[in-house]
Simulated assay, not measured.
Amino acid sequence: MKLLVVSDSHGSKSEIKELAEKYDGEVNAMIHCGDSELSADDAALTPYLAVRGNCDMDARLPEDLIEEVDGETILVTHGHLYGIKMSLMKLRYKAEESGAKFVFFGHSHTLGAEIAGGTLFLNPGSILLPRGRQERTYALVDASDHSIKVQFLTHEHELVEEQEFSE
């Protein structure tokens, strides 16, 4: 399973359009973790499984999405309703409750990935307004039966960081 994960584009359509064009046909799903500041039916957001962030006004965007992609359960949320800037504990409970093996969120604009309880928790950073670093980032996830590879890339598609987890 291959996934493109992006978050916190804050009204900028060009980055998410360009990513959708670049990865069309290359990934099983494209995920936007909120704060797009776009309407649910905006063409730039259409290719993405997208959720509502604290800066999104369109109530048609769901707060959480639980989807099955290539046989794996994924949970997508923005993170503000789970206090992710303090702890991932509430989000871990939601992941357990939903049976998610992959959890994608944004809100803090800070990239990171970790495995907890057999579940990948990933924040792709921000494609527009990063915190803690200069690079505007997104993530690619490549998961097989026995490993998960996460690549964080800049908006110019240069590798920033790579992590690999074995199961």
Rank of each mutant, 00 (worst) to 15 (best):
L4G: 08
V5Y: 04
V6E: 01
H10R: 06
G11F: 02
G11M: 02
S12Y: 14
S14R: 12
E15L: 11
I16C: 08
K17R: 14
E18I: 00
K22H: 11
K22F: 12
Y23I: 06
G25C: 07
G25R: 08
N28H: 15
N28V: 05
M30I: 10
I31T: 00
G34L: 00
S36N: 03
E37R: 05
S39R: 14
A40P: 03
D42Q: 02
D42W: 03
A44D: 04
A44L: 06
L45K: 08
L45I: 06
L45M: 09
P47K: 07
A50L: 03
V51E: 02
V51A: 00
R52E: 02
R52V: 00
A59H: 14
L61K: 07
D64E: 14
L65A: 04
E68K: 09
V69W: 04
D70V: 05
G71F: 07
G71K: 07
E72A: 13
E72M: 13
E72L: 12
T73I: 15
L75I: 03
T77K: 03
Y82P: 08
Y82E: 04
Y82S: 02
I84N: 01
I84P: 01
M86N: 13
M86R: 15
M86V: 13
S87D: 10
L88N: 10
M89C: 15
M89I: 14
K90T: 05
K90W: 11
K94W: 01
K94D: 02
E97Y: 14
G99Q: 05
A100G: 05
F102H: 15
V103M: 01
F104D: 08
F104M: 10
F105L: 07
F105C: 04
G106T: 01
T110Y: 10
T110I: 14
T110S: 13
T110W: 11
A113C: 09
E114R: 15
L120D: 04
F121L: 06
F121I: 02
I127K: 00
L129K: 12
G132Q: 07
Y138P: 03
A139R: 07
I148D: 03
I148A: 12
I148W: 10
K149L: 12
Q151H: 11
Q151M: 15
L153C: 01
L153R: 07
L153V: 00
T154N: 02
E156N: 11
E158T: 02
E158S: 07
V160E: 02
E161R: 11
E162M: 12
Q163T: 09
E164N: 10
